[in-house]
């Protein structure tokens, strides 16, 4: 997976570049999830351990437990580096803080979008999401916030619905102004 490598660098889990706590967290989560799969998920959701149908799940769960344990041990043996307090950069901190707020907002927006598609349909949900995210990202021009979503959604509508013939979801609320025109097509949500 060289495509994802960062300049070919490799960092051992016990490398002390501030990753010890993260390594321990990953190890604990890995062990916990591995045991959960072995003790609960395989017997209840697949079948008795040892049957052919559980082979893949067993490999995955045992692997999680073993590699989680090795990672935990390796991280535990590393002494945390003390002394150096991280350098503070006021402007950098502000940027990072605003970035984190934006990222959390984007995640919340994406979750709401996924559910809003089902209820209010593709066009209203996408318009609101796009306008909301533009505001979240710091776009302050009212014209752009109002017009850019229209342009993007028009392109998607023409490409997907008209061009490819794939109906976009109209939502459970079935907006009369969308359905009467027949522009959106049939709904395709799973119940």
């Amino acid at each position: 997976m060289g495509d994802d490598q960062k300049n070919g660098s490799s960092r051992h889990p016990t490398d002390m570049s501030g990753g010890r706590d993260k390594d321990l967290a990953v190890a604990v989560a890995s062990l916990a999830f591995g045991f959960l799969v072995l003790a609960v998920l395989i017997p209840q959701s697949i079948g008795p351990i040892g049957s052919n149908t559980t082979i893949l799940a067993l490999i995955g769960a045992v692997g999680l437990v073993v590699f989680g344990a090795v990672l935990g041990l390796a991280a535990y043996r590393v002494r945390p580096v003390g002394g150096d307090s991280p350098k503070t950069d006021a402007s950098g901190d502000a940027v990072r803080k605003s970035g984190k707020v934006q990222a959390v907002g984007l995640v919340i927006g994406a979750v709401i979008y996924a559910w809003a598609l089902e209820w209010i349909g593709f066009l209203p949900a996408s318009y609101l999401t796009l306008a909301g995210l533009l505001l979240l990202m710091g776009v302050r021009s009212v014209l752009i916030v109002l017009v850019l979503p229209v342009v993007v959604l028009l392109a998607i509508y023409l490409g997907i619905d008209v061009g490819l013939g794939a109906s976009l979801p109209e939502g459970r609320l079935e907006w009369p102004f969308l359905t009467q025109s027949g522009a959106i097509g049939t709904e395709h949500f799973h119940v």
């Binding site: 994802d4 490799s10 960092r11 697949i46 692997g63």
Partner: peptide, 21 residues
Amino acid sequence: TGGESHLKGLISTMLGILIAV
């Protein structure tokens, strides 16, 4: 070679295997 450490790469692999189940 996929992540920053081999062990974490293997943990990601195991997670992928479980999701495939």
